[in-house]
Design a protein around this nucleic acid. Structure first.
Lengths: 124, 124
DNA sequence: TCGGGTACTCACCTCCGGGTAAGTGCCCCC
DNA sequence: GGGGGCACTTACCCGGAGGTGAGTACCCGA
């Protein structure tokens, strides 16, 4: 089987997109990478409070397979790896924008708590 | 605790929306209801090939709690219940549109199979 | 020399999302 | 009079998503 054919048949575009974005941290990773442009592994870990290293790597690998993130390895003595979004990742993130707005609306409506990952004046 | 406070604190709008849309059939239910306007339980079941009655009800109940769908019961001898989208459901569906397009794009890119639920000339 | 950082891998465990199957009370149609 | 449809409910089970914690190979600063 072709390496990228691992995902099942879909009913519609929505669940094809869902398939790629489902995972506790994937949308946050997308957001982090889009927001910062490029991030190292440890930076991502620090940016997503509560994520385990195992899940971070697992999600990053899957997103790489799915062509959403690019992984650049610098062969150095203290290892250095940089992650960034591919154009597909960027466009997915753009497609998520309206959903993000809806969610923000909803948070306001139900008055849920919101954990801002860190400082920067973010809406969305 | 307030009845609608059952959902945890969120990092951002995306996962607030995800929280509501996560579940194997929820996006499909949204789509079915949006497409047909109003549907009975058995119609939904037939419209979502492979769904189990248990999951259908469970998802419908959650979506009702979340204020996405409206449940209208007609007290009749053969029971009749009609489900439809609330305005929040409709707006969520609208917010999912761009994601659906992205997904459709992706399906084309990777050449995955697509199961059209039933006839009607659908994109998205 | 010891602790901490970098980017991981591996083994193990838990919880719950989701599936299967059966039952319910009432009706209509063959 | 029995089979099927309606809208569910209940009990049971399984697999996988995700968490925990340890280990690795190397380096740097205190």
């Amino acid at each position: 089987m072709a390496p990228s054919a691992r995902r099942g048949p879909y009913f519609c575009g929505i669940d094809a997109a869902m398939d790629v974005v489902t995972g506790k941290w994937k949308s946050l990773i997308l957001w982090e990478l889009d927001h910062h442009g490029t991030r190292r592994f440890a930076e991502l870990r620090r940016g997503l409070p509560g994520v385990s290293e195992k899940m971070l790597i697992q999600h990053l690998r899957e997103m790489e397979e799915d062509g959403l993130v690019h992984r650049e390895v610098y062969r150095q003595v203290p290892p250095k790896v940089e992650y960034s979004l591919t154009e597909h990742g960027v466009s997915l993130n753009a497609a998520l924008a309206s959903l993000g707005q809806w969610g923000t609306e909803r948070i306001r409506r139900i008055g849920a708590e919101k954990i801002a990952p860190e400082g920067v004046g973010t809406d969305r």
